[in-house]
């Protein structure tokens, strides 16, 4: 059954879209930039990072572009001073939440968090740093999990669950105590469900999940491969 065609406006430009696409899908398909961190093409969208909030005319509330379906006649504005301010705050909050010290990070220079901060012009954080004491799991023979660099976007959780089908990862505890957890709070090396496929590592936007053996700035990732596999498995396009 051919999908119904609809048209929406993004920042004033009239765009054609398929029914069922989200605002973000339409924007991406037309090279319109909406910042995201927790979104990864092919994986289900969770709306956790809140960077993709946009304004839709006629609706008082801000809406997340990654989970809001595009509707015929909708008019979306992706950037306003308020949105920019809020996005910067969200990034600042992420930067102070854990210990993001770029100078010693394997992903320095290839980090989505870092890039996003640069793109949105976040030069410093006004909020006090939390400096939590968090463990680093080096028990896996090929990979490392460093909670200090995790932003809880859950891309690894979804890549492992939806693409690899192993569901090794999940999030435990709640609120500011939330922590990525392997199986039922096992060390990664002791996991019996992990296939060591490495999709989680490739999906991770920061240096939280990395391959062993790389020094500072050396870890580059290919999340497009995860996306391609995910789409092939019937994930969201």
């Amino acid at each position: 059954m051919p999908q119904k065609k609809i048209s929406i406006r993004i920042d004033g430009e009239l765009l054609s879209a398929r029914d069922g696409q989200t605002i973000l899908d339409v924007a991406r398909a037309n090279n319109k930039f909406i910042p995201t961190l927790c979104y990864l093409k092919g994986l289900s969208a969770v709306g956790a990072c809140r960077l993709c909030m946009v304004e839709v005319s006629g609706i008082q509330k801000l809406l997340p572009a990654c989970t809001t379906p595009a509707q015929d006649g909708m008019s979306v504005i992706t950037t306003t001073p308020k949105l920019t301010r809020y996005r910067k705050i969200a990034l600042e909050l992420l930067l102070v939440e854990r210990n993001h010290i770029c100078a010693i990070c394997v992903s320095n220079g290839h980090c989505e968090l870092q890039n996003m901060a640069r793109t949105l012009g976040v030069t410093h954080a006004r909020y006090p740093y939390n400096y939590p004491r968090l463990p680093v799991d080096v028990s896996h023979e090929r990979f490392v999990m460093d909670h200090n660099r995790c932003i809880l976007c859950t891309r690894c959780v979804r890549a492992c669950d939806e693409v690899e089908g192993a569901h090794v990862w999940d999030v435990t505890a709640r609120g500011i105590q939330s922590l990525l957890t392997c199986e039922l709070n096992e060390s990664w090396g002791a996991s019996r469900t992990c296939t060591s496929c490495g999709k989680c590592v490739q999906a991770c936007p920061t240096g939280a999940l990395a391959e062993k053996g790389w020094a500072v700035e050396e870890m580059t990732k290919r999340d497009d491969n995860v996306s391609r596999l995910a789409v092939r498995r019937g994930g969201l396009v």
Binding site: A48, R50, A90, L93, V96, P128, L152, I176, Q177
Partner: peptide, 12 residues
Amino acid sequence: GKCVPCRVGLDK
């Protein structure tokens, strides 16, 4: 703890 504003924002 799922979304950033609530998880980190309320902490701040």
